[in-house]
Amino acid sequence: MATEAADHGGEGGGLVFHPMDQFIIKPLFGDGAVGMFTITNMTLWLALAVVAIIALMVLGTSKRAVVPTRTQSVAELAYGFVYKMVEDVTGKDGVKYFPYIFTLFLFILFSNFLALLPMSFSPTSHIAVTAVLGFGVFIAVTALGFIKNGASFLELFWVSSAPLALRPILAVIEVISYFVRPVSHSIRLAGNIMAGHAVLKVFAGFAAIAAVAPLSILGVLAIYGLEVLVSAIQAYVFTILTCVYLKDALHPHH
């Protein structure tokens, strides 16, 4: 990432920041327009995430050891962590959606962490990606709510514990907040990752000036540490919000 910034900085003959260039999607083979099926840099990093997930969850557990190896125990830890989260938040009947939720968790976690490698590409910084994830959850959960509860799913918006006079107002607020959910759900993830990477790039750009170079390198270091934290936390937040939305769909009564 830093070398890329230096490239562009050098061209302009001064401090020129291109913090957003790291998010450009380029065809991996040759030049040309990015069509729907073009293999791009994003395809590569998505594939790497898949490879990493397979390495951890499939190859890591291939021995099926009763006393686990290190890799297997990490896989089991991830499994247990998300399984317990789903069970605690949604209850026993939410456990059958665990594979979907675990898929989301692992995908976001690995994309976030792989994106922290230098010269990498961060799929989760793209609103197109997170919006598919967020709206996917929203549509699935809403459909599930109506399938499981029928029209009584709408009681989710009718706060029966509130005074009767307040209920219509609360219903309007609840409906608005319900439809804002997928937006905040997806923008939170993309925003966090994009901002972190852009800030890293800006700090790296300052390293071109000798006087502030040590400070900027310290800054990169600090922000990098923060980004490691953010990567894990955002994967966790996305997953637990998914569980909360799923719980609302399964048990819409307050």
Partner: peptide, 18 residues
């Protein structure tokens, strides 16, 4: 379209493997 296409492929692959 490209991003959504590859993302869906990725998610399906991860889901199936898991």
């Amino acid at each position: 379209p490209n991003q959504i296409f590859w993302l869906v492929i990725t998610l399906v692959v991860i889901y199936l493997v898991l």
